[in-house]
Every structure is written in structure tokens, then in C-alpha cells.
């Protein structure tokens, strides 16, 4: 129920384009963090569809990210020599789509058998799956095995990172805020009641999983072309947890809250750099305090999911 929602997406992309036109003047350290923020927004928003809206606890999001990352990186590395410099954006977009699609395919392959499980069981299975993906890459000589893949062209810039984030946020919000999409939340609330209302729970869960995995793959592709080196340890379950924390902190199923949480949790560790060795302790303590003070999520103003997207 967002009238003219597409208009907001266009406005957002125009704004991002204007800001990115001046991006050369920014300190490159801050610019790098800004790009990280965009990537984390995509990850958090996509996991929010799976966890927040549809209520399926997934601990394997970094696995989908890895699939997208490696796929896109291999693609651009293979192609970049054969095309002129000016074709870079097309290569990147191609890589994003390719990475996203392959991740979505993995999402489908994992989702169909596992989404019959619930709660803790699903969490464990997805955790295991994420680790399997990581270990596969760790042993795949073609992508550098444990030492990782390097020499990835630096294609990701502020514009692509944030534009993709805007598209991801729009896609999830638009999907959930339709009559079709109310089914995700119905499945989250009560599967038995949902199926009595003609909603196919398995179908909805798999859809959420596939769409979520797609965007995780896209985020991974952006990440690869931002860091220029990727290695399997970057996609371990700590990364999955990080995304889970963003979703919980932002308030499960609140798109705006989750976006703000993604921004905060990306910037916070950087801001805490001056306190060096205490950094992670303070970071963890802050999360504990926030969770105790606002268990419903940091930015949850009202309890119904209807209006607050």
C-alpha cells in the first residue's frame, strides 16, 4: 500500500547519482565505509524478508553471499581483458545478476528440502549449509582455494552500492506490502491459520528464501568488486551472525529499522577504532544493552507491521 512507491525508488536513485557525482571529493576511507554500508543494507534487508517477515530463522546468509561473490568475481576476471575500459559498468551489472541468480538457485536447492523444518532445526541446517558452501570454496583450486581470489577489478562504487541497496529495499517492501505479500507475514504468524486461508506455507517460505538469497548474492558480488580480494573466511558463520544481528536490532520485519541498524552496525566498529583493543568488547556490550532496552527492535514504533515499512 505505498502509492507511487516506484517514484520513491527513482527519487532515491537520482539522489544517489547526485551524491556519487561528488564522491571523488570524499576521503576514500569514508567512501569505502559508505560502500560497505550499502552492501550491508542489501544483506540485512534481504535476510529481513526471510527472517523478519516470513519468520524462517536462517544462519546461512553469508553462504549465499559467497556464491554471488565468487560467481561475479570469476565472471568479471574472465571478461575484463576482452572488453574496453568503458564497458566496466556493464560487466559489473552482468556480474551482479549472474551472482544473484546463482545464489537464488542455491537458495532454491537448500530451501525446498529444509523449509519443512522449523525454528531451531532450520537455523542449524542453514548454518550447516552456509559452512558447506564456504568449505567448498576453500577447497576449490580454480578460485584460489584457502588463499582466496584476488585481482578482482574495482568496479563497485558508491553509486552501484547504494542504488542496489535502494532496489533491494524497494523490492522487499513492495513485495511484502501487497496482498500477495501479506502471505509472508501470515506464514510467520501462524502457519496453520495461514494454510486455512488458502496460503501455501511451503511456497511462500521457498519464495522468501529464493528472493533473499538472490539479493545476498548481489551483495556478495558488490563486495567482491569493492574489496578486490575475497577469501572463504570472509563468508563464515560470523558474517551470517552479523547480518542476523542487524535484522534483530532493527526489529524483525521493519524495513526502515533494519536499514538503520545496518548503517549503525557498519559505522559503529569504525567509530570505535580509537579504543583499539576494547573495540569489540564495547561493540558487543552496546548490542547487549540495546537488546535489553528495546527487545522489540531499536526503531519499532508501533507493533503492527501494516504501516511501518
Amino acid at each position: 500500500m505505498i502509492p507511487g512507491a516506484k517514484r520513491w525508488l527513482v527519487v532515491a536513485i537520482v539522489l544517489i547519482a547526485i551524491v556519487s557525482a561528488f564522491s571523488k571529493q570524499f576521503n576514500s576511507y569514508y567512501l569505502g565505509i559508505a560502500i560497505d554500508v550499502g552492501i550491508n543494507i542489501i544483506l540485512a534487508v534481504s535476510l529481513n524478508l526471510i527472517m523478519g517477515h516470513t519468520g524462517q530463522f536462517s544462519l546461512g546468509h553469508a553462504g549465499f553471499m559467497a556464491v554471488g561473490s565468487y560467481t561475479a568475481a570469476s565472471f568479471t576476471i574472465a571478461c575484463t581483458k576482452h572488453v574496453p575500459e568503458s564497458a566496466a559498468p556493464f560487466l559489473l551489472v552482468g556480474g551482479l545478476i549472474l551472482g544473484g541468480l546463482l545464489a537464488a538457485l542455491c537458495g532454491l536447492a537448500v530451501g525446498v528440502p529444509t523449509l519443512r523444518l522449523r525454528g531451531d532445526y532450520l537455523a542449524i541446517v542453514t548454518l550447516g549449509f552456509g559452512e558447506i558452501i564456504r568449505v567448498v570454496f576453500q577447497n576449490m583450486e580454480a578460485v584460489g582455494a584457502a588463499s582466496g581470489l584476488s585481482g578482482i577489478p574495482n568496479y563497485t562504487n558508491f553509486f552501484w552500492s547504494w542504488t542496489t541497496a535502494a532496489i533491494a529495499a524497494y523490492a522487499v517492501a513492495a513485495l511484502v506490502n501487497s496482498t500477495y505479500g501479506r502471505g509472508f507475514i501470515a506464514v510467520h504468524d501462524d502457519e496453520i491459520a495461514a494454510s486455512a486461508m488458502g496460503i501455501n506455507p511451503t511456497r511462500y517460505k521457498v519464495t522468501a528464501f529464493v528472493v533473499g538469497a538472490f539479493f545476498a548474492g548481489v551483495a556478495g558480488a558488490l563486495y567482491a568488486h569493492h574489496k578486490q580480494t575475497i577469501n572463504p573466511t570472509g563468508f563464515d558463520f560470523m558474517k551470517s551472525f552479523e547480518i542476523v544481528v542487524m535484522v534483530i536490532l532493527g526489529g524483525m520485519g521493519r524495513t526502515v529499522g533494519v536499514i538503520i541498524a545496518a548503517i549503525l552496525l557498519t559505522i559503529l566498529p569504525e567509530m570505535l577504532r580509537p579504543v583499539a583493543e576494547y573495540r569489540m568488547i564495547i561493540y558487543s556490550l552496546l548490542i547487549i544493552v540495546i537488546m535489553m532496552a528495546r527487545p522489540q527492535g531499536l526503531f519499532t514504533l508501533r507493533s503492527s507491521k501494516g504501516a511501518n515499512t
Binding site: 501479506r182 507475514i185 501470515a186 510467520h188 504468524d189 501462524d190 496453520i192 491459520a193 495461514a194 520485519g253 507493533s303 503492527s304 507491521k305 501494516g306 504501516a307
Partner: peptide, 11 residues
Amino acid sequence: IRLFHSLNVFD
């Protein structure tokens, strides 16, 4: 009663 508790009446 098994309503969808995180949705409003309309939804």
C-alpha cells in the same frame, strides 16, 4: 482464536 497477531485488522 488464531488471528495473524502482527497484522492489523484490515491486513
